[in-house]
Write a protein that binds this DNA or RNA. Structure first.
Lengths: 353, 353
DNA sequence: GGTTTTTTTGGCAGCGCTACCAATTTGCTG
DNA sequence: CAGCAAATTGGTAGCGCTGCCAAAAAAACC
C-alpha cells in the first residue's frame, strides 16, 4: 500500500481576530414583541403576517416586514413550537452513517421535508437496539411530528414508548414484520429469495456466502436466511459461508472471499451481504485473476452506483433508498393514515453472475 | 448492463390494524406538573431531580423517579430549551449527502454530540449558496448552540446573519480563508499542491485533470487551481482537462477519463477531483486494458476505504473527515474560544501513481 | 435546648410565541 | 346614511419548563 506521510496542510493554525461570539454571547435577541412595537401593530398581527396565516392588510404586511428587516428579526421556532400544537421536527434514529443506505434515505427525506418547512434531526444507534431505545426516548423529548426508524425490530421498551408518544412512527426499509404505524420499503426476505432464484436460474449450484455481522444488521440476516431457504428448496443448499465480525466494507468483502476460497475450492457463485462486500470480492477476483463470472459468480445487494461503473457491472439488487426517504417524508407531511408502502426492488443482472 | 426487472417485493401492501396514532393524536401528554403532583413534591424539585442539578434528598429522588416511571413521563425539551438559556441543538448545513465526505463528518460529530446530550439537526444545500443562506436562516430559528457549515465561502447575507445570531459558527473542511469563529479541517490548496508535487516527483510530466462542476464545489476548485499552479511552477503545465457538468460520481469519472483520452493521447498521469471520479478512471483503465500506472497514472482525493481494496490501491490524499466532525463537536460542547484547527491530511502513495 | 448553618424544598415569574376571542374598522346593501 | 356582514386588528391566557428567591427542614454547633 505504499508509504504514507503526514502533511501539516499548509497554513499554520490561526486565531481569528474577530471574537464575534463572545461579544454577542448574551446579546438580547430581537423578539416578536419588539417587532410589533417597531411596526406599531399588535403581536398577533406580526405573528399572522410572518406565518402568512389569518388576514391582514397589505399595508400592515409591509410595515411588519420593514420592521423585521430593520431589526434583523429571526423568529424563534422553539417558542413557536411550544405555543402551537405539533412541531415540524422529524426525528431519524438510524443505525449508521457509514452504510450509504442511510444517507441515501436521509437525502430523499430531507428534500421533501425541506420543501415543507419541516426540520430533520437525527441520531445514530450503531445497530444497537438498546441505544436505539435510549435515542428514541431522547428524540421524543423534542416532541417531533414523526420518528423514523430502520426496520421493524425494536425493543419492547421502544415500541411501548413510541406507541404512547402519540407521534407518527415510520419504519423504513423492511416490510417483513408488523408495522407500528407507517412502514415504507420492501421485503428483505423477498430480496434474498429472488437473489437465490436468479443464481439458480443461471445454473449455479455450488453457492457460498460472505457477510458481515448479522446479529446487528437484522435486515441482512433476513436476506440471508431467505436466500438459504430458497437454495435448500431447490436442492442446492449453501455450500459454505464466511461471516466477518466487523461492519460491512469493501475490505471485509475482499478478505471474506479470500478466506472462503481458501477453505472451499469448488464454489461457482458467492452471495454477499451487500454491494460493499461484493465489490471487495470482485476486486479479489480481479487481483487474483479469477475469471468472473465463468470461474466464480458474484452477487451483491443494494445497487450502488459504483457497481455500474466497474469493468463488469455488478449483479445485484437495487433498492429504492432515496425513494424510501421521499415517500416516508411525504406520508408524514400529509399526515397520511397508517399504512405499509411496498416500493419493491430491482434485480440488476449485471455481468458478474 | 443486462436486463432489469421489477419485483413487487413479496408481501402485498398491508394496512396495520392498530391505529395507535389516530387514537392518541391529542392524547394529553404527561407534564412535569403532573409528575410533581403524583410524587407529592413541587415542580422545581422534579426539575432538579430530572436534571440532576441542585440538591435534593435520596428519598425525594426515589419518589420522583417512581412517579416518572409510573406515568411514563417524557420531558419536553422544547419547553426546557425555551425556559433556559442556550439550547443543546447543533445545526449542520451541508452541501450534500451523496458525497460521502459529509456523512463522515456527521458521523464523527454525532458521536461526540450524543455523548454530551446534544442533538444534531441538519439540512442540505445541494451546493447552492443561496440555499445555504435560506437554510442557515431556518436553522437559526431553532436557536442552536452552533451552526456548522462546509467551507469558508458564504454569501454576505449568510455571514451577516451568523454574526448577528450570537451562536457559535464552525466552518468545516477548508482552512483557506478567514474563519468566522471556529474552523476545523485542512488546506485544500495544500492538498492540491502536494498532489502535484507527488506526481512531479514520480516523474510524470504530461498531466491531465478530470473533475466535476467546480463552481459549486469550491473546495475542489481550490485543489485544482493549486494543483495547476504547482505544475506550472515546475514547467509541466496541465496538458488537458475534462470537466463534467454533474456531481462527482464513479460513472462520471469513467466517462471523463474516456473523453479526455479520446482528445489527448500522450498523457502519463491524470488527477481527479476526488476518489469517486478517480475510481471511475481506474475502472476505465482496467476495462480498456490500459496499464496503471506504467501507461497512465491515476491520483485521487479523499482516501475512501474502497480505494484500499481495489486490485491496486488508489494513490490519493486521505482527509480526516470523521476527525473533523469529532473535533468540531468537541470544540462546540466545550465552548472553546474561536480558533482554526488544522488537522492536515495524509498522502497515500498507493499503487496507481 | 437554642442558635446558627446548611440542605432541601416550593412558589412563581417569565422564556417567545400562538390560539382564541372580542373589539375595531371597512365595505356593501337598500 | 343607517344597518349588517366581512375583513382586520389587539389583548391575553397559556404552552411546559427553568431560574430565582424565600421558606422550611435538617444538621451542626455551643
Amino acid at each position: 500500500m505504499g508509504a504514507e506521510r503526514w502533511s501539516s496542510g499548509g497554513q499554520p493554525p490561526q486565531q481569528s481576530g474577530l471574537d464575534v461570539t463572545m461579544e454577542f454571547k448574551n446579546q438580547p435577541t430581537v423578539t416578536l414583541a419588539e417587532v410589533a412595537e417597531a411596526a406599531g401593530v399588535g403581536e398577533s398581527t406580526v405573528s399572522r403576517v410572518l406565518r402568512n396565516h389569518g388576514s391582514f392588510s397589505g399595508k400592515t404586511r409591509e410595515r411588519v416586514m420593514a420592521a423585521v428587516e430593520r431589526l434583523g428579526y429571526v423568529p424563534n421556532r422553539i417558542a413557536g413550537t411550544l405555543a402551537s400544537t405539533g412541531s415540524r421536527l422529524v426525528a431519524f434514529v438510524i443505525p449508521s452513517l457509514s452504510n450509504i443506505v442511510f444517507p441515501d434515505v436521509l437525502r430523499g427525506a430531507s428534500a421533501v421535508l425541506e420543501e415543507n418547512r419541516y426540520q430533520a434531526v437525527f441520531s445514530v444507534t450503531d445497530y444497537d437496539p438498546g441505544k436505539e431505545e435510549a435515542l428514541a426516548a431522547a428524540m421524543l423529548a423534542w416532541r417531533p411530528a414523526a420518528v423514523m426508524l430502520a426496520g421493524c425490530e425494536h425493543t419492547e421498551g421502544t415500541v411501548k414508548m413510541l406507541r404512547a408518544s402519540g407521534c407518527r412512527v415510520v419504519e423504513l426499509l423492511d416490510l417483513d414484520g408488523d408495522a407500528l404505524d407507517i412502514a415504507v420499503g420492501f421485503s428483505n426476505r423477498a430480496a434474498g429469495r429472488e437473489s437465490a432464484a436468479f443464481l439458480l436460474k443461471r445454473g449455479y449450484r455450488r453457492i457460498g456466502y460472505v457477510g458481515h455481522d448479522l446479529n446487528r444488521d437484522t435486515r441482512a440476516g433476513k436476506r440471508f436466511s431467505s436466500f438459504c431457504e430458497t437454495l435448500g428448496a431447490h436442492d442446492a443448499p449453501l455450500v459454505a459461508r464466511e461471516i466477518l465480525a466487523g461492519a460491512s466494507s469493501v475490505e471485509n468483502g475482499r478478505l471474506g472471499l479470500e478466506r472462503l476460497l481458501a477453505r472451499t475450492t469448488d464454489l461457482d457463485a458467492v452471495y454477499f451481504s451487500n454491494d460493499d462486500m461484493a465489490l471487495g470480492g470482485y476486486f479479489h477476483c480481479l487481483a487474483q485473476g479469477i475469471a468472473v463470472p465463468s470461474k466464480l459468480a458474484i452477487f451483491g445487494y443494494n445497487g450502488l452506483d459504483i457497481g455500474r461503473a466497474t469493468p463488469q457491472p455488478l449483479s445485484t439488487i437495487r433498492t429504492p433508498r432515496v425513494a424510501t426517504g421521499e415517500i416516508a417524508a411525504q406520508l408524514v407531511v400529509t399526515n397520511a393514515p397508517p399504512q405499509s408502502v411496498d416500493l419493491g426492488f430491482e434485480l440488476v443482472e449485471g455481468a458478474t453472475a
